[in-house]
């Protein structure tokens, strides 16, 4: 088992580095010049200012040296300075990551809370109204464009009905709590500031539903398919023949065996939610990493792009690693192979 863990870890690190190398090479083939993008019109026309800017960010160095310096800094946990925000990329990420982590986690929990039961019931009661409902939910969730859904939700629940608050993480005139973790729900609990907790929670409702919509669909469909497969197996028939309670057959026999694909999907879905919230964050003016990623990309902010790539690759690799580990626990045959 230990050997398995180490071999998986080593592969993971190589994978992350490969991902950064690929992105570095792609980013450098873009014809746009980040120095010209970052400087004002007058400075951009001043060769001395442009050269000074390039030197400051190491853009005047050969490609291999730029990448080598990136690796050196990475070894020290330093992502360098962002070209567009002009401060340490790490400071930007520390600023923006909590908003995304909070949103993605709530969206993920929401996906599980809705997707799992809906998928299970849809399988158990195949072709009933619940199954049709599950199919409709999945179809809408997967196929509705995020920005469209976000605007519709905002227009109905905020604009028309007034049930939900508007965009942002808190009401405009609310005072943000002192930063401890940056996760508002956690910070307000630690501080015992329940009014702000309710405000933050209310602001999370619409964006998390929007962000979760596609994942709910995926989890519902996958759970349903896996459960149907499990329910048709001989051991389930035997369990039923023994006269076991329906609940015991479903939760004790079928469900654990149906969980393998769901765990894989769930892991990837969480990684996706963490890294793919650009649209939701844009519409809801959510100060998270999604917007930061987008802005870094359009301004060809190399240090920020490289940092985000490393983080995204690491998140995916880590999640995959955890999924693999859980496989090993759920199904011991994996390790033996």
């Amino acid at each position: 088992m230990i050997r398995y863990v180490f071999s998986r870890l080593a592969t993971s690190i190589v994978l992350v580095l490969l991902a950064t190398l690929v992105v570095f090479l792609i980013a450098n083939t873009i014809p746009g010049d980040p120095a010209l993008a970052a400087l004002g019109d007058e400075q951009a026309s001043d060769p001395a200012a442009v050269n000074a800017f390039r030197a400051l960010y190491g853009l005047d160095k050969p490609l291999w040296e730029q990448y080598w310096r990136f690796l050196q800094r990475l070894a020290h946990g330093d992502f360098g300075r962002s070209i567009s925000s002009r401060r340490a990329v790490m400071a930007d990420i520390i600023d923006y990551a909590p908003a995304t982590i909070e949103l993605a986690t709530i969206a993920f929990l929401l996906s599980l809370l809705i997707g799992l039961p809906l998928g299970i019931i849809a399988a158990v009661r195949r072709d009933s109204w619940v199954d049709h409902l599950a199919r409709a939910v999945a179809l809408i969730g997967v196929s509705a464009p995020t920005f469209w859904l976000a605007f519709i939700m905002l227009a109905i629940f905020y604009g028309y009905l007034g049930w939900a608050p508007g965009t942002g993480r808190l009401d405009p005139i609310a005072f943000a709590p002192d930063r401890i973790t940056g996760l508002l729900l956690i910070d307000t609990i630690i501080l015992g500031d329940w009014e702000t907790f309710r405000d933050a929670a209310a602001h999370l409702v619409l964006p998390s539903i929007v962000l979760a919509s596609a994942t709910i669909g995926l989890i519902t469909r996958t759970t349903r398919a896996a459960m149907l497969e499990a329910l048709s197996q001989d051991y389930v028939r035997v369990a039923r023949a023994k006269g076991l309670l329906a609940r015991v057959v479903i939760t004790g026999h079928a469900l654990p065996n149906a969980m393998l694909p769901v765990v894989t999907l769930g892991g990837l879905a969480y990684a996706n939610l963490l890294t793919g919230a650009v649209m939701t964050e844009t519409v809801f003016s959510w100060p998270g990493l999604g917007r930061y990623t987008f802005r870094s990309a359009v301004s060809v902010d190399f240090p920020a792009i490289m940092a985000i790539t490393t983080i995204v690759a690491a998140v995916f690799v880590l999640v995959n690693f955890l999924v693999d580990m859980s496989y090993a626990m759920l199904d011991p045959r994996v390790v033996k192979k």
């Binding site: 039961p117 009661r125 209310a202």
Partner: peptide, 30 residues
């Protein structure tokens, strides 16, 4: 498959879990 694999009560409970998650967050607006 309405052959008693899962009772109506249990069904309502399971569905309710998802709904409750939504409702818990829904605003009593600040």
């Amino acid at each position: 498959m309405s052959n008693g694999w899962i009772s109506r009560r249990e069904l309502a409970l399971l569905l309710g879990a998802g709904g409750a998650a939504l409702a818990a967050g829904l605003p009593d607006r600040v």
